[in-house]
Amino acid sequence: MTDSPPARPIFAPTRWSLVLRAKGNSPEARAALSELCGAYCDPVLRSLRSRGLDEEHARDLCQEFFAHVLRGSHLEGADPRRGRFRSYLLGALRHFLSDLRERDARLKRGGGIATESLERVPEPATESDDARFDRDWALALMARSLAQLAEEYGRDGRAEWFAQLKPCLEGSGPAERQSEIAARLGLSEGALKVAIHRLRRRFRETLLHEIRQTLPEDGDATEELTYLIEVLARG
């Protein structure tokens, strides 16, 4: 007898599956894609910055990239059953950047172009850049889930609970800390344990839900989670 997890059918269309199915053409798909892009612009931005761009240029380029993505031109060839949003976005970014370099080179051959455009063109991607992208992706995912959880707790008027309990998401921690938290929240230690259990379960659900949004319809969210944990462990 535990509190109920929100009833969420496993095979409900995820945002990414909506996008894939409509090849980005329906208004619904466009909304979903723009929502996804909004959620994961951070890894793209970081990726651009890590290629040697300063903050301002990176932001500009990021804007440009997402505008490009939201035009949906790359989605035509996407297989609706396969491919996750993460891979799609990374591939799109790579293409975008190589196009950029080509354009740049063409301009140079054309002559009379300022050297500043050279600075604007990021370095080509390397293996470690891809790994970094995935790592940043995991962080973005985690941040998004945490934010959603914080919002939920805030809605229930328990923002303080979330603030106090969130360190427990890392692990149980020393017993003294638990006693401290229990005292601060005015809970018994048993009640605290129940609260921690709930937080962790809710976090797991939220996280898996968020992951599912970036996967095709029958994608395995736990598999993606395992992959992201591995990526983090390597970094």
Binding site: M142, L146, E170, R204
Partner: peptide
């Protein structure tokens, strides 16, 4: 304190992403 790794700068809520995600990967 759990995995003895440096928590990356910019980690959400300052929590160790490895431990948080690893914690979420096992069902409670």
């Amino acid at each position: 304190p759990h995995c003895a790794c440096t928590v990356p700068v910019g980690a959400p809520e300052g929590l160790c992403p490895r431990c948080v995600l690893a914690g979420a990967s096992t069902s409670t």
